[in-house]
């Protein structure tokens, strides 16, 4: 299974850079970014990538944006080989990239869970020290 990150601007490569710093390189993760060169060029690159790879989890930065819409369009005719999710964040990518999950629907559930639980609110609490042996 491949993971393809899609973003407006450089957030996809930036998050992958953070991933590599913590977990090392992962040859199964790629990215394509929408930049000034335009939507049609971006769209072609994405379609080309998806045509060449089987079983791809596409992670977009935001639902309803161009990267999402382009991959969603592809998904509608290729639901056997890709899944599309939005809300790319580092905890999500770390969980996916370091687990050995290889089935698209399992990867989708894992991504959703990790992406959501990755949002934590710092609270200043007295630390307890009770370990339950």
């Amino acid at each position: 299974m491949k993971i393809l990150l899609l973003s407006h601007g450089n957030s996809a490569s930036g998050i992958l850079d953070g991933y590599s710093m913590i977990a090392g390189n992962n040859s199964n993760i790629d990215y394509i970014q929408l930049d000034e060169s335009g939507i049609s060029k971006f769209s072609n690159k994405v379609t080309d990538y998806l045509d060449k790879n089987n079983q791809v989890l596409v992670i977009c930065d935001i639902a309803g944006g161009t990267p999402y819409n382009v991959s969603f369009d592809y998904f509608l005719s290729h639901s056997d080989k890709i899944r599309v999710i939005s809300g790319l964040n580092l905890p999500m990518l770390l969980e996916l990239g370091t687990s050995n999950v290889d089935i698209l629907d399992e990867a989708v559930s894992l991504a959703k869970k990790a992406g959501q639980t990755g949002i934590q609110i710092a609270e200043d609490e007295e630390p307890d020290n009770d370990i339950d042996f």
Partner: peptide
């Protein structure tokens, strides 16, 4: 170091930490 203990507890997410 109370501050460091707090940071470590937070870093461990749902895992329990004992510091001795």
């Amino acid at each position: 170091n109370t501050l460091r203990r707090k940071v470590l507890k937070a870093a461990a997410n749902e895992l329990k930490v004992g510091i001795y």
